[in-house]
């Protein structure tokens, strides 16, 4: 057809093998994500004595899954520096938002009359 798409096709041929190995990676990640989902659900039925452990385990598995999606499906394993710096900035501000908000709501003056009472 046109010169341009011919060029594109030619360059594709060089990468064909590369892409084929990518596809294999994608399928492995797919399996890992499904496995992760099953493990998360199973953990729900395990009775950890503390809620903190329950939350920690669930979020740990979710973070691994999220890492797999971001690193491989979103190609963050081999992305440009600009994208990394952008994500670092928003990660810092997100941490600030969540951390300072929680801290700000829970560091209240002690020994005052404030307390929460549930009135049905």
């Amino acid at each position: 057809m046109s010169e341009q798409s011919h060029n594109a096709a030619a360059s594709h041929d060089d990468h064909d093998h590369d892409i084929a190995s990518h596809i294999k990676t994608y399928l492995i990640i797919f399996g890992a994500l499904l496995l992760g989902t099953v493990i998360t659900v199973l953990m729900y039925y395990v009775d950890f004595s503390s809620m903190a452990v329950t939350v920690g385990v669930a979020l740990f598995i979710a973070s691994i899954k999220a890492f797999l999606v971001a690193a491989y499906f979103m190609h963050l394993m081999s992305e440009k520096k600009l994208v990394y710096s952008l994500l670092v900035i928003s990660a810092i501000f997100f941490t600030g938002l969540m951390g300072l908000t929680l801290w700000g709501t829970h560091d209240t003056p002690k020994n005052t009359l404030m307390k929460t009472v549930y009135v049905p």
Binding site: L86, L87, S90, F94, L97, L102, T105, T116, V117, Y118
Partner: peptide
Amino acid sequence: WLFLASEIMLFGALFSAYILLRVSAPDG
């Protein structure tokens, strides 16, 4: 990627709200 960075803040704020409401919910 810029748009996704702002989406991180959007859903991040909602998750923060979830955690805050949950940890400050009174017993019963």
